[in-house]
Amino acid sequence: SPTSAGVEIEHLTQNVLKSYRETCQLRAEDLQLRRWDTFSREEVCAYQRKPMEEMWQRCAGRITEAIQYVVEFAKRLRGFMDLCQNDQIVLLKAGAMEVVLVRMCRAFNADNRTVFFEGKYAGAELFRSLGCHELISSIFDFAQSLCALHFSESEVALFSALVLVNANRPWLQDQAKVARLQGHLDVAFRVLLRRTRREGLLARLPPPGRLRALCSQHVEQLQAFRRLHPGVLHAAFPPLYRELFA
């Protein structure tokens, strides 16, 4: 009946919000409080002087930490653990980095184009020694464009659940089951937007291709780094990072 469907959707929404709150890594209030706490010129120079391998290793470490929270988010999402293991892995392998990029907009200060990194806010120039200027610029541009949407915490929660539960990912075994869950999350998102008079957001969301392109760009840069520094990836990068991207 329409009523019980409504109750179901409300339960799902509450589950997504709770799962997100429990796994958001950094609280929005804390990020907000520290948004003008930027690295000093000397600190930026110290990062810029780091060898490329060390900077890559640091960034891989921070990405891996963020991904572990996304895995916990997925595990708490109602219905996710009912999918077969193949599909859980397919969705995480394809979507974890995309969710990290979406979550990053919370840790981004669009007023001075800085992102929270290792305890303070950092501009794109801090990442210079990575040797992938274009990728960093694209990620900063993406964060800037998401910030312009003024996402609420509930919107980030539901949007990231939808980025993760995507029935169009290749290699799914039970695509219909993923599509059902995706459909319920989609309804939950639309109900939330209607309730908060934010339906206009739907037309302004980034197209899925944009997230996919950023993730491919990351993998391409990793391959280029690997050619320059053979062996470093295996010796010094987190195993989960290697498993997902190498």
Binding site: V71, R76, Q85, I89, L92, K93, P239, E243
Partner: peptide, 16 residues
């Protein structure tokens, strides 16, 4: 599955 050993392990470790 062997290729995704760590992801597997993380998924199987209860809701920690």
């Amino acid at each position: 599955q062997e290729k995704h050993r760590i992801l597997h392990k993380l998924l199987q470790n209860g809701n920690s």
